[in-house]
Design a protein around this nucleic acid. Structure first.
Lengths: 168, 168
DNA sequence: TTGGAAAGTCAACAAGGCTGACATAAAATC
DNA sequence: GATTTTATGTCAGCCTTGTTGACTTTCCAA
Protein backbone atom coordinates (compact mmCIF):
# COMPACT_ATOMS: atom_id res chain seq x y z
CA UNK A 1 0.00 0.00 0.00
CA UNK A 2 3.06 2.15 -0.34
CA UNK A 3 1.52 3.83 -3.35
CA UNK A 4 -0.74 6.08 -1.33
CA UNK A 5 1.38 9.15 -0.83
CA UNK A 6 1.15 11.61 2.02
CA UNK A 7 3.23 14.70 2.45
CA UNK A 8 5.84 13.51 4.85
CA UNK A 9 6.82 17.09 5.59
CA UNK A 10 3.77 18.47 7.34
CA UNK A 11 2.06 16.65 10.15
CA UNK A 12 -1.22 17.11 8.32
CA UNK A 13 -2.20 14.36 5.96
CA UNK A 14 -2.57 15.46 2.36
CA UNK A 15 -3.40 12.78 -0.15
CA UNK A 16 -2.01 12.73 -3.63
CA UNK A 17 -4.97 11.18 -5.31
CA UNK A 18 -4.08 10.26 -8.83
CA UNK A 19 -6.72 8.83 -11.14
CA UNK A 20 -4.63 5.68 -11.08
CA UNK A 21 -4.99 5.30 -7.32
CA UNK A 22 -8.68 5.98 -7.48
CA UNK A 23 -9.04 3.37 -10.20
CA UNK A 24 -7.43 0.80 -7.95
CA UNK A 25 -9.90 1.64 -5.23
CA UNK A 26 -12.79 1.30 -7.66
CA UNK A 27 -11.63 -2.09 -8.84
CA UNK A 28 -11.00 -3.22 -5.29
CA UNK A 29 -14.62 -2.43 -4.48
CA UNK A 30 -15.79 -4.37 -7.51
CA UNK A 31 -13.81 -7.52 -6.79
CA UNK A 32 -14.31 -7.40 -3.04
CA UNK A 33 -18.06 -7.08 -3.35
CA UNK A 34 -18.11 -10.27 -5.36
CA UNK A 35 -16.27 -12.06 -2.59
CA UNK A 36 -18.53 -10.47 -0.04
CA UNK A 37 -21.65 -11.99 -1.57
CA UNK A 38 -20.16 -15.27 -2.81
CA UNK A 39 -20.65 -17.42 0.31
CA UNK A 40 -24.30 -16.59 1.03
CA UNK A 41 -25.03 -16.88 -2.69
CA UNK A 42 -23.83 -20.48 -2.66
CA UNK A 43 -26.15 -21.34 0.22
CA UNK A 44 -29.10 -19.51 -1.30
CA UNK A 45 -28.70 -21.22 -4.63
CA UNK A 46 -29.45 -24.62 -3.15
CA UNK A 47 -32.63 -23.25 -1.59
CA UNK A 48 -33.79 -21.49 -4.76
CA UNK A 49 -33.58 -18.12 -3.10
CA UNK A 50 -31.65 -15.08 -4.25
CA UNK A 51 -29.74 -12.18 -2.78
CA UNK A 52 -32.95 -10.23 -2.34
CA UNK A 53 -34.24 -12.87 0.08
CA UNK A 54 -31.02 -12.66 2.04
CA UNK A 55 -31.26 -8.89 2.37
CA UNK A 56 -34.84 -9.11 3.58
CA UNK A 57 -33.99 -11.76 6.18
CA UNK A 58 -31.00 -9.75 7.34
CA UNK A 59 -32.92 -6.57 8.04
CA UNK A 60 -35.96 -8.30 9.53
CA UNK A 61 -33.57 -10.03 11.90
CA UNK A 62 -31.87 -6.72 12.65
CA UNK A 63 -35.07 -4.97 13.53
CA UNK A 64 -37.72 -7.47 14.44
CA UNK A 65 -41.29 -6.25 13.92
CA UNK A 66 -40.43 -3.54 11.42
CA UNK A 67 -43.11 -2.57 8.93
CA UNK A 68 -43.03 -3.28 5.22
CA UNK A 69 -42.58 0.42 4.59
CA UNK A 70 -39.55 0.68 6.84
CA UNK A 71 -37.98 -2.31 5.18
CA UNK A 72 -38.70 -0.73 1.81
CA UNK A 73 -36.79 2.39 2.77
CA UNK A 74 -33.81 0.45 4.06
CA UNK A 75 -33.55 -1.80 1.02
CA UNK A 76 -34.16 1.01 -1.45
CA UNK A 77 -36.36 -0.97 -3.84
CA UNK A 78 -39.98 -0.58 -4.86
CA UNK A 79 -42.63 -2.19 -2.73
CA UNK A 80 -43.71 -4.42 -5.60
CA UNK A 81 -40.23 -5.82 -5.85
CA UNK A 82 -40.00 -6.42 -2.12
CA UNK A 83 -43.46 -7.89 -2.05
CA UNK A 84 -42.59 -10.76 -4.32
CA UNK A 85 -39.65 -11.73 -2.17
CA UNK A 86 -41.62 -11.32 1.01
CA UNK A 87 -44.46 -13.39 -0.42
CA UNK A 88 -42.23 -16.43 -0.94
CA UNK A 89 -40.59 -16.03 2.47
CA UNK A 90 -44.01 -15.89 4.15
CA UNK A 91 -45.38 -18.79 2.11
CA UNK A 92 -42.33 -20.88 2.95
CA UNK A 93 -42.78 -20.15 6.64
CA UNK A 94 -39.59 -18.14 7.14
CA UNK A 95 -41.25 -14.82 7.86
CA UNK A 96 -44.41 -13.98 9.71
CA UNK A 97 -46.50 -10.92 8.83
CA UNK A 98 -48.71 -9.55 11.59
CA UNK A 99 -51.34 -6.86 11.16
CA UNK A 100 -50.49 -3.72 13.13
CA UNK A 101 -52.33 -3.29 16.41
CA UNK A 102 -52.63 0.47 16.30
CA UNK A 103 -52.68 0.93 12.55
CA UNK A 104 -54.23 -2.04 10.82
CA UNK A 105 -52.88 -0.97 7.45
CA UNK A 106 -49.38 -1.81 8.59
CA UNK A 107 -47.82 -5.25 8.46
CA UNK A 108 -45.13 -6.01 11.02
CA UNK A 109 -42.52 -8.55 10.00
CA UNK A 110 -40.91 -11.23 12.16
CA UNK A 111 -38.64 -14.18 11.49
CA UNK A 112 -40.02 -17.59 12.38
CA UNK A 113 -37.68 -20.11 14.00
CA UNK A 114 -37.03 -21.53 10.54
CA UNK A 115 -36.33 -18.06 9.15
CA UNK A 116 -34.00 -17.23 12.00
CA UNK A 117 -32.11 -20.46 11.37
CA UNK A 118 -31.50 -19.60 7.72
CA UNK A 119 -30.54 -16.04 8.61
CA UNK A 120 -27.97 -17.39 11.06
CA UNK A 121 -26.55 -19.75 8.47
CA UNK A 122 -26.25 -16.99 5.88
CA UNK A 123 -24.80 -14.35 8.14
CA UNK A 124 -22.37 -16.79 9.70
CA UNK A 125 -21.03 -17.64 6.25
CA UNK A 126 -20.57 -13.96 5.58
CA UNK A 127 -19.00 -13.31 8.96
CA UNK A 128 -16.45 -16.07 8.47
CA UNK A 129 -15.04 -14.26 5.45
CA UNK A 130 -15.30 -10.87 7.10
CA UNK A 131 -13.57 -12.09 10.22
CA UNK A 132 -10.73 -13.59 8.19
CA UNK A 133 -10.30 -10.37 6.24
CA UNK A 134 -10.32 -8.29 9.42
CA UNK A 135 -7.73 -10.56 11.04
CA UNK A 136 -5.50 -10.42 8.00
CA UNK A 137 -5.67 -6.67 7.68
CA UNK A 138 -5.49 -5.77 11.34
CA UNK A 139 -7.43 -3.37 13.56
CA UNK A 140 -6.11 -0.13 12.12
CA UNK A 141 -7.02 -1.23 8.64
CA UNK A 142 -10.48 -2.19 9.82
CA UNK A 143 -11.06 1.25 11.27
CA UNK A 144 -10.00 2.83 7.98
CA UNK A 145 -12.14 0.43 6.01
CA UNK A 146 -15.24 1.49 7.88
CA UNK A 147 -14.40 5.17 7.66
CA UNK A 148 -14.01 5.12 3.90
CA UNK A 149 -17.17 3.08 3.40
CA UNK A 150 -19.19 5.47 5.53
CA UNK A 151 -17.85 8.43 3.58
CA UNK A 152 -18.81 6.73 0.33
CA UNK A 153 -22.52 6.36 1.13
CA UNK A 154 -25.21 8.72 -0.06
CA UNK A 155 -26.28 11.01 2.79
CA UNK A 156 -29.68 9.33 2.98
CA UNK A 157 -28.12 5.85 3.12
CA UNK A 158 -25.65 7.03 5.71
CA UNK A 159 -28.52 8.20 7.87
CA UNK A 160 -30.10 4.74 7.61
CA UNK A 161 -26.81 3.06 8.28
CA UNK A 162 -25.90 5.12 11.32
CA UNK A 163 -29.33 4.58 12.78
CA UNK A 164 -28.89 0.85 12.45
CA UNK A 165 -25.23 0.91 13.32
CA UNK A 166 -25.59 1.79 16.94
CA UNK A 167 -28.74 -0.10 17.70
CA UNK A 168 -32.18 0.86 16.49
CA UNK B 1 -14.68 3.86 15.33
CA UNK B 2 -13.77 3.44 18.98
CA UNK B 3 -15.70 0.19 19.05
CA UNK B 4 -12.95 -1.83 17.44
CA UNK B 5 -10.99 -3.12 20.38
CA UNK B 6 -7.35 -4.08 20.44
CA UNK B 7 -5.42 -5.46 23.35
CA UNK B 8 -3.71 -2.38 24.61
CA UNK B 9 -1.37 -4.52 26.69
CA UNK B 10 0.67 -6.31 24.04
CA UNK B 11 2.19 -4.46 21.13
CA UNK B 12 0.65 -7.04 18.85
CA UNK B 13 -2.77 -6.24 17.54
CA UNK B 14 -5.45 -8.70 18.57
CA UNK B 15 -8.95 -7.91 17.44
CA UNK B 16 -11.98 -8.62 19.54
CA UNK B 17 -14.35 -9.38 16.74
CA UNK B 18 -17.84 -9.61 18.05
CA UNK B 19 -20.67 -10.62 15.74
CA UNK B 20 -22.02 -7.14 16.31
CA UNK B 21 -18.90 -5.50 14.93
CA UNK B 22 -18.85 -7.80 11.96
CA UNK B 23 -22.50 -7.00 11.29
CA UNK B 24 -21.65 -3.32 11.12
CA UNK B 25 -18.97 -4.07 8.56
CA UNK B 26 -21.39 -6.13 6.51
CA UNK B 27 -24.00 -3.38 6.49
CA UNK B 28 -21.37 -0.78 5.68
CA UNK B 29 -20.42 -2.81 2.59
CA UNK B 30 -24.05 -3.04 1.55
CA UNK B 31 -24.83 0.66 1.85
CA UNK B 32 -21.48 1.82 0.49
CA UNK B 33 -21.76 -0.32 -2.61
CA UNK B 34 -25.05 1.34 -3.41
CA UNK B 35 -23.37 4.72 -3.24
CA UNK B 36 -20.48 3.41 -5.25
CA UNK B 37 -22.70 2.51 -8.21
CA UNK B 38 -25.27 5.29 -7.89
CA UNK B 39 -23.57 8.00 -9.96
CA UNK B 40 -22.69 5.91 -13.03
CA UNK B 41 -26.14 4.31 -12.86
CA UNK B 42 -27.76 7.72 -13.25
CA UNK B 43 -25.72 8.46 -16.36
CA UNK B 44 -26.30 5.02 -17.85
CA UNK B 45 -30.04 5.20 -17.35
CA UNK B 46 -30.38 8.11 -19.74
CA UNK B 47 -28.49 6.18 -22.40
CA UNK B 48 -30.48 2.97 -21.92
CA UNK B 49 -27.40 1.10 -20.81
CA UNK B 50 -26.91 -0.84 -17.60
CA UNK B 51 -24.19 -1.64 -15.13
CA UNK B 52 -23.07 -4.50 -17.32
CA UNK B 53 -22.17 -2.06 -20.10
CA UNK B 54 -20.23 0.07 -17.66
CA UNK B 55 -18.17 -2.88 -16.46
CA UNK B 56 -17.34 -3.89 -20.00
CA UNK B 57 -16.27 -0.36 -20.93
CA UNK B 58 -14.20 -0.08 -17.77
CA UNK B 59 -12.13 -3.17 -18.38
CA UNK B 60 -11.74 -2.60 -22.11
CA UNK B 61 -10.39 0.83 -21.24
CA UNK B 62 -8.10 -0.65 -18.60
CA UNK B 63 -6.60 -3.18 -20.93
CA UNK B 64 -7.04 -2.02 -24.47
CA UNK B 65 -6.99 -4.83 -27.03
CA UNK B 66 -7.89 -7.58 -24.58
CA UNK B 67 -9.62 -10.63 -26.00
CA UNK B 68 -13.22 -11.60 -25.38
CA UNK B 69 -12.04 -14.55 -23.34
CA UNK B 70 -9.93 -12.39 -21.05
CA UNK B 71 -12.80 -10.02 -20.48
CA UNK B 72 -15.03 -12.97 -19.72
CA UNK B 73 -12.67 -14.15 -17.01
CA UNK B 74 -12.36 -10.72 -15.44
CA UNK B 75 -16.09 -10.07 -15.39
CA UNK B 76 -16.98 -13.57 -14.27
CA UNK B 77 -20.06 -13.93 -16.46
CA UNK B 78 -21.01 -16.31 -19.25
CA UNK B 79 -20.16 -15.51 -22.84
CA UNK B 80 -23.82 -15.34 -23.79
CA UNK B 81 -24.37 -12.74 -21.15
CA UNK B 82 -21.32 -10.72 -22.14
CA UNK B 83 -22.11 -11.11 -25.80
CA UNK B 84 -25.46 -9.42 -25.48
CA UNK B 85 -23.83 -6.39 -23.88
CA UNK B 86 -20.88 -6.35 -26.26
CA UNK B 87 -23.20 -6.63 -29.24
CA UNK B 88 -24.99 -3.41 -28.34
CA UNK B 89 -21.74 -1.59 -27.57
CA UNK B 90 -20.29 -2.59 -30.94
CA UNK B 91 -23.50 -1.80 -32.82
CA UNK B 92 -23.65 1.61 -31.17
CA UNK B 93 -20.07 2.31 -32.14
CA UNK B 94 -18.58 2.45 -28.65
CA UNK B 95 -16.42 -0.64 -28.96
CA UNK B 96 -14.43 -1.99 -31.87
CA UNK B 97 -13.74 -5.70 -32.31
CA UNK B 98 -10.65 -6.59 -34.36
CA UNK B 99 -9.62 -10.03 -35.55
CA UNK B 100 -6.39 -11.17 -33.93
CA UNK B 101 -3.25 -10.87 -36.03
CA UNK B 102 -1.45 -13.92 -34.75
CA UNK B 103 -4.49 -15.96 -33.80
CA UNK B 104 -7.36 -15.09 -36.08
CA UNK B 105 -9.87 -16.83 -33.85
CA UNK B 106 -9.44 -14.16 -31.23
CA UNK B 107 -11.31 -10.87 -31.20
CA UNK B 108 -9.45 -7.97 -29.64
CA UNK B 109 -11.57 -5.23 -28.12
CA UNK B 110 -10.90 -1.50 -28.26
CA UNK B 111 -12.86 1.58 -27.28
CA UNK B 112 -13.72 3.95 -30.09
CA UNK B 113 -13.43 7.69 -29.44
CA UNK B 114 -17.12 7.69 -28.58
CA UNK B 115 -16.67 4.71 -26.24
CA UNK B 116 -13.70 6.32 -24.54
CA UNK B 117 -15.72 9.49 -24.01
CA UNK B 118 -18.50 7.62 -22.24
CA UNK B 119 -16.01 5.63 -20.19
CA UNK B 120 -14.40 8.88 -19.06
CA UNK B 121 -17.74 10.36 -18.11
CA UNK B 122 -18.70 7.28 -16.09
CA UNK B 123 -15.41 6.80 -14.33
CA UNK B 124 -15.08 10.48 -13.57
CA UNK B 125 -18.47 10.39 -11.84
CA UNK B 126 -17.28 7.44 -9.80
CA UNK B 127 -13.93 9.04 -9.03
CA UNK B 128 -15.55 12.21 -7.76
CA UNK B 129 -17.29 10.25 -5.05
CA UNK B 130 -14.25 8.12 -4.33
CA UNK B 131 -12.01 11.15 -4.09
CA UNK B 132 -14.38 12.84 -1.68
CA UNK B 133 -14.57 9.73 0.48
CA UNK B 134 -10.79 9.36 0.49
CA UNK B 135 -10.31 13.01 1.45
CA UNK B 136 -12.83 12.76 4.25
CA UNK B 137 -11.37 9.57 5.67
CA UNK B 138 -7.68 10.41 5.27
CA UNK B 139 -4.67 8.48 3.96
CA UNK B 140 -4.38 5.99 6.77
CA UNK B 141 -8.01 5.04 6.42
CA UNK B 142 -7.55 4.63 2.68
CA UNK B 143 -4.67 2.23 3.19
CA UNK B 144 -6.78 0.19 5.58
CA UNK B 145 -9.74 0.27 3.24
CA UNK B 146 -7.71 -1.26 0.44
CA UNK B 147 -6.12 -3.86 2.73
CA UNK B 148 -9.45 -5.13 4.00
CA UNK B 149 -10.98 -5.21 0.53
CA UNK B 150 -8.07 -7.19 -0.83
CA UNK B 151 -8.33 -9.66 2.01
CA UNK B 152 -12.02 -10.07 1.31
CA UNK B 153 -11.61 -11.19 -2.30
CA UNK B 154 -11.66 -14.79 -3.43
CA UNK B 155 -8.12 -15.94 -4.19
CA UNK B 156 -8.87 -16.15 -7.89
CA UNK B 157 -10.34 -12.65 -7.96
CA UNK B 158 -7.40 -11.35 -5.97
CA UNK B 159 -5.07 -12.77 -8.59
CA UNK B 160 -6.98 -10.91 -11.31
CA UNK B 161 -7.05 -7.76 -9.24
CA UNK B 162 -3.36 -7.74 -8.36
CA UNK B 163 -2.48 -8.38 -11.97
CA UNK B 164 -4.51 -5.35 -12.98
CA UNK B 165 -3.54 -3.32 -9.96
CA UNK B 166 0.05 -2.77 -10.87
CA UNK B 167 -0.33 -2.52 -14.60
CA UNK B 168 -1.10 -5.43 -16.89
C1' DT C 1 -69.46 11.07 6.05
C1' DT C 2 -66.81 11.44 2.51
C1' DG C 3 -62.59 12.14 0.08
C1' DG C 4 -57.74 11.83 0.09
C1' DA C 5 -53.56 9.63 1.71
C1' DA C 6 -51.07 5.60 3.16
C1' DA C 7 -50.00 0.56 3.28
C1' DG C 8 -50.05 -3.35 0.94
C1' DT C 9 -51.16 -6.55 -3.13
C1' DC C 10 -51.61 -8.10 -8.01
C1' DA C 11 -50.35 -8.01 -13.06
C1' DA C 12 -47.30 -7.30 -16.58
C1' DC C 13 -42.88 -5.93 -18.46
C1' DA C 14 -37.52 -5.36 -18.88
C1' DA C 15 -32.59 -6.06 -17.82
C1' DG C 16 -29.29 -9.10 -17.26
C1' DG C 17 -27.89 -13.15 -15.14
C1' DC C 18 -28.00 -18.43 -16.35
C1' DT C 19 -27.86 -23.24 -19.14
C1' DG C 20 -27.77 -26.00 -23.25
C1' DA C 21 -27.19 -26.78 -28.05
C1' DC C 22 -25.08 -25.73 -32.14
C1' DA C 23 -22.11 -23.26 -35.99
C1' DT C 24 -17.82 -21.58 -37.73
C1' DA C 25 -13.16 -20.74 -38.23
C1' DA C 26 -8.55 -21.27 -36.90
C1' DA C 27 -5.03 -23.61 -34.49
C1' DA C 28 -2.94 -27.57 -32.61
C1' DT C 29 -2.11 -32.34 -32.61
C1' DC C 30 -1.81 -36.96 -34.17
C1' DG D 1 -4.01 -34.65 -44.14
C1' DA D 2 -7.47 -35.84 -40.79
C1' DT D 3 -8.99 -35.03 -36.30
C1' DT D 4 -9.53 -32.59 -32.17
C1' DT D 5 -9.41 -28.53 -29.49
C1' DT D 6 -10.03 -23.63 -28.85
C1' DA D 7 -12.20 -19.00 -29.47
C1' DT D 8 -16.07 -16.89 -30.60
C1' DG D 9 -20.81 -16.07 -31.78
C1' DT D 10 -25.80 -17.20 -31.83
C1' DC D 11 -30.49 -19.13 -30.81
C1' DA D 12 -33.88 -20.50 -27.52
C1' DG D 13 -35.58 -20.40 -23.09
C1' DC D 14 -35.35 -19.92 -18.11
C1' DC D 15 -34.90 -17.22 -13.48
C1' DT D 16 -34.27 -13.32 -10.33
C1' DT D 17 -35.13 -8.93 -9.30
C1' DG D 18 -35.73 -4.56 -10.75
C1' DT D 19 -39.58 -1.41 -12.85
C1' DT D 20 -44.63 1.04 -13.52
C1' DG D 21 -49.65 1.04 -13.23
C1' DA D 22 -53.94 -0.19 -11.24
C1' DC D 23 -56.45 -1.77 -7.30
C1' DT D 24 -58.08 -2.73 -2.21
C1' DT D 25 -58.24 -1.81 2.50
C1' DT D 26 -57.64 1.18 6.18
C1' DC D 27 -57.06 5.46 8.44
C1' DC D 28 -57.70 10.29 9.24
C1' DA D 29 -59.17 14.88 8.66
C1' DA D 30 -62.18 18.37 6.68
Amino acid sequence: MADIGTNAAGGEALLFLTDEQLRKGIEAMFFAYRGFTADPDRILEKLEYGRAHHRALHFIHRQSGLTVNTLLAVLGVTKQSLNRVLRTLIDDGLVESRVGRRDKRERHLYLTEKGAALERELSEAQRVRMRAAYRTAGPQAVAGFRQVLEAMMDPEMRRQYLMLRDGA
